[in-house]
């Protein structure tokens, strides 16, 4: 049974949200990614400027549970655009939702920093094409700020 969302206003409707960003592969791919499909929206490709969002549907929310880490994130569906700004470089990229994720609840309390600038909890995953616009893929995980374009 799908769990319902909390009734408090989602924090990302009030201001930009800070959290951690990582990257994931999707679509046709090589290696361990070769079994990955096109994502919850059916459009995801590693070479496209896309991202995964933890609240694309009730079923998605029931898996990712960002509320268990204290995040009430808005329901946003396939194609919705976010701007993701890397707090290390200040560089940003605008991407659209193509999948459900990350599984925020499994990494609750995790924190990434660039010097004194930190962000806590995983709230977005980018495709390799998108992530590599704002950071090296070899960094794996970075603090970021998420807003609407």
């Amino acid at each position: 049974m799908a769990r319902s969302q909390p009734t408090d206003p989602p924090i990302d409707l009030q201001a930009a949200v800070r959290g951690e960003v990582s990257w994931f592969c999707c679509g046709t791919a090589w290696g361990p990614c070769s079994s990955t499909g096109k994502g919850a929206c059916g459009t995801c490709n590693s070479g496209n400027l896309q991202h995964a969002w933890p609240n694309t549907s009730d079923a998605c929310w029931a898996i990712t549970r960002p509320d268990s880490c204290g995040f009430a994130l808005s329901r946003r569906t396939c194609g919705f655009q976010h701007r993701i700004t890397a707090l290390c470089s200040g560089t940003s990229v605008v991407t659209s939702i193509a999948d459900c994720g990350p599984q925020t609840d499994l990494f609750c309390g995790e924190r990434s920093c660039c010097g004194a600038t930190c962000a806590t909890d995983r709230i977005i995953d980018l495709t390799p094409a998108a992530y590599s616009r704002i950071a090296s893929l070899s960094t794996g995980l970075r603090p970021c700020e998420i807003s609407t374009p």
Partner: peptide, 18 residues
Amino acid sequence: PEAAFGAAAPDVEPGAPD
């Protein structure tokens, strides 16, 4: 790695192939 990502890249439609 970090220094390389300040360069301006051309605009690409969100969702599209880069």
